[in-house]
Amino acid sequence: MSIILEQLLNGLTIGSFYALIALGYSMVYGVMKLINFAHGDLFALGSYLGYTLLVWSAGAVSQRFGLWGGMAAALLFAFFAVGCVGVLMERVAYRPVQKSGRLPLVVSALGVSIFLENLIMAVWGPRYQAYPASVVPTYTISLGWFHITSMQLFILILSFVLMLILYYVVQKTTFGAAIRATALDKEMATMLGIDVGKITLFIFFLGPALGGMAGVMNGMYYRQISFVMGWNYGLKAFTATILGGIGNIPAAMLGGLLLGLVEMFGAAYISSAWKDVFTFLILILILIFRPTGLIGEKVAEKV
C-alpha cells in the first residue's frame, strides 16, 4: 500500500512538471498553431537561471530570508526572466516567419531550440550542474507509514496552486474566454474587439514563464541539471499535451499528470527500460484512435 502511494506521489510530482511545461506547448499551439520545439529549452533555461540565483547571489537571499525565501526568489526570477525570453523569441524568431507558413515556422523553432541549448552550454558549461544541498530544504514529513519530502509537498502544492489559478483565469474570466476565442477564430476575435497581438504576447510570456518555473522546481527536486535536459522533458511534456488534447488548457494539465503516473507505474510494474517506449506508443495510439486527445472536439475539414 505505501509503495503504491509513494509511486503515486512520485508520479504526480513528475507529472506536475510535465503539466506545467505542457501548458506552454498547448497555449502556444492554440494561438499560433506551432509546436514550439524551443519550449523544452526554455524549461532548461529556467532551471539554470534559478540555479545561478541560488548559488551566486542567493547565498545572500537565503541567509536573509531563509531557505524558502531563497527558493521563492529563484522561482520568481526564473518565471519573469524566462517569460521575457519567450516574448523576445516570439518577436524575433516567430512573428517575422509566421506569414511564410508553417514549415518555416517549425524550422525557426528548431533553430531557437538549438540556439538556446547551446547558449546554456556556452554560459554554464557542458557538464552537469548540481543545486547545492544547502539551498533546498531536505526534511521528510512522516505520518505513520506515509512519508513525503518537504520538496515534494512544496512542488505539488505550488504546481497545484499555479494550475488552479491558470484554470480559473482561462476558464472563468472574460480575459480567459478571450484567449480561448483567439485560439478558435482569430478573425472573429478581432471583430469582437480582442487585440490578438496582445493575447499572443501574453501567451508567449506566460507559457515560457511557467516552464521556467517548472525548471527551477525540477532542479530543486532532482538537484542535478544539464543543458540537454530540455529535449527530454520537452518531448515528454509534448506527449502529455497530445495525450490531453492540444490547444486545450485543462487537457494539458490532465495529460501531464496522467503521463507522470503512467511513467511511474509503468517503470515500477512493467519495465523501467521500456517505459519511454510505452509512453511513445501511447502517443501514437492516441493519435491514431483519438487524434483530438482525451478531451477535445473534432473539427471537420471543409471541402
Binding site: 524575433v92 516567419v97 511564410s100 528548431l110 540556439f115 547551446n118
Partner: peptide, 9 residues
C-alpha cells in the same frame, strides 16, 4: 541555431 532562424526569416 541563429542562422536557421535568420534563414527562415
Amino acid at each position: 541555431g541563429g542562422a536557421l532562424v535568420l534563414a527562415m526569416i
